[in-house]
Amino acid sequence: MLGEGIIKGMVETARNFLGSYVREDRLTTVQYPEEREPQIENARQFPFLVYDGEDWETGLRCVACQICEKECPPQCIYIVKSKDKKPDYKGQMQFYPAIFDIDLSVCMSCQICVEVCPFEAIKMDTDYEWSTPDRFAALLVHKDQLARPNAYYQQLHPTDAAASDAVLAQERARAQAKARAAAELKTKAAAPPPTS
């Protein structure tokens, strides 16, 4: 019979309407500014730059290789390489970014910069509360706002951070082993040849 489905639907919506006043668990809405849903570990919103140690300027992992700048699909990253060098986490002398800006209004949270970074220097943050009344300057995020300590990353994404730390530790160990071997070689070369 024509109209049967309409009546069934009307009954269903009426049940929803009345039920939402009776049973609180029907309402799944979260009253946002007062209460927030916890984010899952893999949530990603906007990149940040990781630094080791206490001081963000010296500890920044980024070596200004500009791979992320080239790979970024919407091209929201802007990097200017420094003229001088500073030692990185394994003591090697490296360039560092004199300017590192990300345009928040352009970024699409794709995480490609994180995937391509060979130095574990850029990671995704879960913070999404960046709203501002300024449409231009405030949405261009600079290096000093982007820098976060490694401890923050470990707390944010424990699994990923552990993996990344392991990679870095491995790299560092390899570098140290290499340095030790080189040093041994050097001492060997410096030492007088054994008489045999």
Partner: peptide, 10 residues
Amino acid sequence: KGLGRIQNRY
């Protein structure tokens, strides 16, 4: 308000 309640919203 009514549409919200029909869709189980506030």
